[in-house]
Design a protein around this nucleic acid. Structure first.
Lengths: 106, 106
DNA sequence: GTAATAGTTCGAATATTTTCGAACCAATGA
DNA sequence: TCATTGGTTCGAAAATATTCGAACTATTAC
């Protein structure tokens, strides 16, 4: 108990966020749907779901990883679970207008 | 010579253009670079190039196909070659702001 | 401490994409 | 006509991505 657990998950720095990776991450309908659930506010991972909720948790974890490694979402420990949030400010600075254009798309 | 050759290549209608396919098509750096070359004006296919110009023409043709089938570019016969153009108006109507946000991204 | 919850990670199987050469086709030019 | 240019298409091989179960970790509740 000398230390509290550090966040083991790596997030790219704002200046490392790569357009191709962002577009790829968002090009999957299931991942985009996950992101849309974070549009208005951060959400505990346990409260957001893939389209098909019967998929195993390792699959959901993989999709969250793709989004995180692309720099689209933040994933930090919270209580016994995880808090997911959109990296909105960073994305808006890095690629102005992109995120909203995608989220607003019908 | 009763008919001129019809365009054999299929293009999705504007209302069929799918966001995920567009994002996927543009998520490849080589394809995005191709698209950037069409930003200001249509171009004959022979005058635009992949990053690595030593790649065989079947590879370039494949990348053009992915972009065309996603609805990002138009590919029509012209003379003995092909004229490529961005489907800018359709994309702007379908997904306002998206194309410019991507093309403007550093 | 033990059990339950909420995940991550690993490895293997599967599915999807990409790459490339070969074959093909249409338009132009000699 | 025949050759050249500028592509498309096919099929197979290689590279990537996805899915899933099993094993593992951390936190909270009891």
């Amino acid at each position: 108990m000398e230390k509290s657990a550090p966040d083991p998950l790596e997030h790219p720095r704002e200046d490392e966020i790569d357009l191709s990776k962002v577009l790829f991450a968002l090009s999957d309908p299931a991942r985009l749907e996950l992101v849309r659930q974070l549009r208005d506010a951060p959400l505990e991972a346990a409260r957001c779901h893939l389209q098909d909720p019967s998929l195993p948790k390792s699959t959901k974890s993989h999709q969250m990883k793709v989004l995180r490694e692309a720099g689209v979402i933040r994933n930090e420990p919270k209580g016994r679970g995880r808090l997911l949030s959109l990296r909105r400010e960073e994305l808006n600075r890095r690629f102005p207008g992109l995120l909203d254009a995608i989220l607003d798309a019908s």
